[in-house]
């Protein structure tokens, strides 16, 4: 069992012929990921890395029954690619691309409200279910199958969390990188619900990010939820000034709660266990 992605998930890749995409997809296929199609508008080749290439998402979906799309398209054309995938009513879209304008993401999120499609990212390492499948750019050699579900807003810190968990003898059911862009497709709560419904996940680790009101919103919603599985949130302290807002408006949206310390208190009061370093995280998991 896993959430969002497993070895049976049929995946298409938009922008499969790019250098970065080719490098990572080759590794993903070797890992066992079920990559069934590539999509490149005005394609020049019919297959790439042994996978059939189509001009459109719709065609790829019809011909291969793919239900998910992994997007590697450059930022300037990402909006069109994402909207095409939403329009094709796929179950899942994972956007690796970084640097997508905020106003483009606003439009995309608006379109998403009309569908059941789940969008993960942008600017995410993706989703990995160890030993089965991954949609993204993970270092595939560090993950271990297990029963901890990880949801993270910080990209590379997630790898560090995984390494520490594995060293302590744990493994992951699925790791979901939400992405650390200004506006992302899916927040913590939706994935907490998925992990709650996943039999194989025994505990959930939430890795917070710097800036923004996602953790606040999460705390408010989580406080009202039935607590099904232990949720441990990692909020790394900020000894720098990365969390200072350069205006009053972001402070108003955050109700003045901006530093990791302030976020910690709020998450704690919502019913989560909160830690600020990796060794406390593994200690905490061992005591569950």
């Amino acid at each position: 069992m896993a959430v969002l992605v497993d070895k049976n998930t049929k995946i298409m890749v938009q922008g499969i012929t790019g250098t970065q995409a080719s490098f990572h997809i080759q590794r993903a296929i070797k890992y066992g990921t079920n990559i069934v199609a590539g999509v490149v508008p005005n394609k020049k080749e019919d297959t790439h890395l042994g996978v059939p290439v189509f001009n459109t998402v719709k065609e790829a979906k019809e011909k291969t029954k793919a239900t998910a799309s992994l997007i590697f398209v450059p930022a300037k054309s990402a909006k069109a690619a994402i909207l095409e995938a939403i329009d094709a009513k796929l179950d899942l879209i994972v956007v690796i691309t970084s640097g997508i304008p905020v106003s483009d993401m606003m439009e995309i999120r608006h379109e998403l409200t009309k569908t059941k499609t789940i969008l993960i990212g942008p600017n995410t390492p993706g989703i990995i279910t160890p030993d089965e499948s991954y949609m993204g750019i993970f270092p595939d050699n560090i993950h271990k199958s297990g029963n901890i579900g990880i949801i993270s807003r910080s990209s590379t810190l997630t790898y560090e969390v995984v390494l520490e968990l594995n060293k302590a003898g744990f493994g992951e059911s699925t790791v979901v990188g939400l992405g650390d862009d200004f506006i992302i497709g899916t927040g913590f709560i939706d994935i907490i619900k998925k992990f709650n419904a996943d039999k194989n996940t025994k505990a959930i680790v939430l890795v917070g990010g710097i800036g923004g009101n996602y953790e606040l919103e999460t705390a408010h919603v989580y406080a009202e939820m039935t607590k099904e599985k232990p949720v441990i949130a990692l909020m790394i302290e900020d000894p720098t000034s990365l969390s200072i807002n350069f205006g009053l408006a972001p402070d108003i949206l955050c109700r003045g709660i901006t530093t990791p310390q302030e976020k910690k208190k709020l998450l704690e009061s919502s019913g989560m266990i909160v830690v600020d370093n990796l060794s406390d995280l593994t200690k905490c998991l061992s005591q569950l």
Binding site: I210, I236, P239, T240, L278
Partner: peptide
């Protein structure tokens, strides 16, 4: 390093 969360973790 490559990541701001990672940077904060190292500084701590």
């Amino acid at each position: 390093t490559n990541g701001s969360g990672l940077a904060l973790n190292i500084i701590n």
